[in-house]
Design a protein around this nucleic acid. Structure first.
Length: 277
DNA sequence: ACGAGAACCTGTTTGC
DNA sequence: TGCAAACAGGTTCTCG
């Protein structure tokens, strides 16, 4: 489900519901997601007050006042819902974790495919955690630029599509926004990453920022099941130029070519072979 | 070192 | 209509 804009949207929904609230009850409705829940997850969270909700790459971080941080990844189908305790028929199927807060709010984590994960870390050690140790820079942060891309892509013979999906190159892009950014930069997804430094990275870095910023403003993209914490849908999917548009016409004026779909390392890539070289 | 492919899961869509 | 295959926003492992 979620790439950076969707995860950012979820954080913005969770923050007002959770920050400053105390967790009164934690219901682990199974023993694992992608990994077993860490030992002591319920004990650590129960009674804790949430001091901050933030995001690193596609991870949601919930800092607790006593110095631990809850780490959550949504995988492909993870989703949080905020509603009052005792409201209609919950928990629902695939609600694997339920938090009750001291103001009567219930937070449910639902994940049909269970590719999501939850873990704990001391807040001051987060950067050393295995999930974060090798992550690339935030694409909307100061560490990301065409100069950074020049350095990160130099000598890499993997296709640029794969290099951008690699979270150690830049953290937070996924299949949709890589396809969209490469289209905007007029770069073929098949092109070797090593040929990007120079003029092409000067086009690529800014459009990566643009497409993510626009998607966050639209509340992310809703393809099949993604929703905000209040059930509202994102609407950036209406602004896709290539993603999921196989066979449709390219939107570049005077182009009119058909959008192609190819498979690169097992993932669909959508692009215009006329505009993207 | 690098890329392809599979694996982890369930649900939905597509094709015969 | 029914059933099977293909496919899905992610990550991580093995294999050649």
């Amino acid at each position: 489900m979620p790439e950076l804009p969707e995860v950012e949207t979820v954080c913005r929904g969770l923050a007002p519901a959770m920050v400053g609230k105390r967790i009164t009850k934690v219901d682990l409705r199974r023993k694992d997601l992608r990994f077993p829940f860490p030992k002591g997850l319920r004990a650590t969270l129960t009674g804790a007050t949430v001091s901050n909700i933030r995001r690193r790459a596609k991870y949601i971080l919930a800092d607790l006042e006593h110095g631990d941080t809850l780490i959550v990844h949504l995988g492909m189908t993870g989703c949080f819902t905020v509603d009052p305790i005792g409201s209609a028929q919950n928990p629902m199927k695939h609600d694997h974790v339920v938090f009750d807060l001291d103001d009567g709010t219930r937070i449910r984590f639902n994940d049909p495919r269970r590719f999501g994960l939850m873990d704990l870390s001391r807040t001051d050690n987060l950067a050393q955690h295995a999930f974060f140790e090798h992550l690339g820079p935030e694409p909307l942060g100061n560490g990301f630029s065409s100069a950074y891309l020049d350095e990160a892509l130099a000598g890499r013979r993997t296709p640029i599509k794969s290099a951008l999906l690699d979270q150690t190159t830049v953290a937070g892009l996924g299949n949709i926004y890589v396809c969209e950014a490469l289209y905007r930069a007029r770069i073929s997804p098949r092109r070797s990453a090593a040929t990007i430094p120079g003029q092409r990275s000067k086009r690529l870095a800014p459009v990566i920022r643009d497409v993510l910023t626009e998607a966050i403003e639209a509340g992310g993209s809703t393809l099949r099941d993604y929703a905000h914490t209040d059930g509202e849908l994102g609407y950036f999917q209406h602004a896709f130029s290539v993603y999921d548009r196989e066979g449709d016409r390219c939107l570049t004026p005077l182009c009119n070519a058909q959008i192609k779909r190819i498979v690169q390392s097992g993932r669909s890539t959508f692009f215009c072979s006329n505009c993207q070289r």
